[in-house]
Amino acid sequence: MRQVEAVIIRVQQGEQESFAFIVDAFQQPVYRYCCRMLGNRQDAEDAVQDVLVKAYQSIRGYKPTVSFSAWLYRIAGNHCLNLLRRRRMQGHFLRVFRPDTAAAAGPEQTLEERLYSPALEAALGRLSLEERNLLVLRVFEEQTFLEISAILNITPNALHKRMERIKRKVRETMQAEEGISWNGQESAMSTKI
């Protein structure tokens, strides 16, 4: 990481092309994180570019009081949360009533490229976006509470408590979802259009 810090100083001093080293070094982990957050590979590939460009635009303000990766996770986290809020805003708050039916038909959730099991997907859907971020950082990015504390500006103690709650919530939902039987009763025979 010393090499990274040295490159950052060069970029801060105006050596724009040195930023390519940062992009090479961090594109894959940022992509992985965005995939977990956004649940969609194509959106994640767009997001990683946006995040790295934002990082470049802000790099003069970076100070090594936190690690560069924590700083980058913070930018990536804010970017993904904004995208997810926009997605929720568009996906969940518009109901179209067609003339013949009262059934709501909002935009479909797209799960073309499933990154999570159905049970975990359902559990993630019940978390707030901030809880999802913490879960991704802790469980999939395997960050320590100290590192997450640097990213989110929340004390490790508080993070630990939150993570316990999130873990319990996720496991309860996963267990409930996994318990769904696909072998229901023969109630189909009276079905009508």
């Binding site: 930023f19 594109q27 992985r32 570019q49 790295l52 990154l115």
Partner: peptide
């Protein structure tokens, strides 16, 4: 998760 290569695209935007 697939491996991506976006260095050229990011650097073009940076410039």
């Amino acid at each position: 998760l697939s491996v991506i290569e976006v260095t050229d695209r990011v650097m073009a935007r940076v410039r």
